[in-house]
Computed example of a mutant assay.
Amino acid sequence: MRLLSLARAAWQAEGLYLRRSGRGYAIQAGFGAAAAIFGILMLVMLHIAGFAALLPGMGPVWAALVVAFADLVLLAIFGMLARKPPRDPVAEEALALRQAALRQMGDTATQALILAPLLRSQTLKKGAIGAAITAALVGFFNRR
């Protein structure tokens, strides 16, 4: 019964972790999309600035360059926000709970494997030897 409750807790923790971390990645993708939009706008403004540079006079060029510089600043801000990995304390706690439940499931299964020869055997001596051999094998494979 304990094994099933641990499996259920691990399953629920995994679902919570995936839902919460997915939300963070969606926000990160939104910031990346905003950075891409401002990058495209910056390129458009640089093209307008180049075109305006060919025109006589200095007014349109400087205005276009100022707008392009503002787009560059916004591009840098949104780009840095998109690079920052999402941190959600609830998702991290769910991941820790899942790992603890899986570790306890492994411990419970190991205990069952060690005790199985004792419960199956006809004599205590033969069961103790089987349990010792099983414990040695489980310990050997856990270290690998």
Results as ranks from 00 to 15, higher is better:
M1V: 07
R2F: 10
L3G: 04
L3F: 08
A9T: 13
A10I: 00
A10Y: 08
A13M: 07
A13T: 02
Y17K: 08
R19F: 07
R20W: 10
G24M: 06
Y25M: 14
I27Q: 15
G30F: 13
F31H: 12
A34L: 15
A36Y: 10
F38G: 04
A49W: 12
A49M: 11
F51C: 00
A52I: 02
L54C: 11
L55C: 12
L55F: 13
P56A: 11
P56N: 09
G59A: 13
V61K: 06
V61F: 09
A63P: 01
V66D: 00
V67M: 14
F69P: 02
A70R: 05
D71R: 01
L72D: 06
L72F: 15
L74R: 09
A76E: 07
F78M: 09
F78Q: 04
G79K: 03
G79F: 05
G79H: 02
A82C: 05
R83H: 08
P85C: 02
R87S: 09
A94K: 03
A94W: 10
L95C: 03
R98E: 14
Q99P: 01
R103M: 10
Q104K: 14
D107S: 07
A112H: 07
I114E: 01
I114K: 04
I114W: 05
I114N: 02
I114R: 06
A116F: 07
A116V: 01
L119F: 07
R120L: 10
S121Y: 03
K125T: 12
G127N: 04
A128Q: 15
A131M: 07
A131P: 01
I133A: 09
A135G: 02
V138T: 03
G139C: 10
F140I: 05
F140K: 10
F141H: 05
N142R: 13
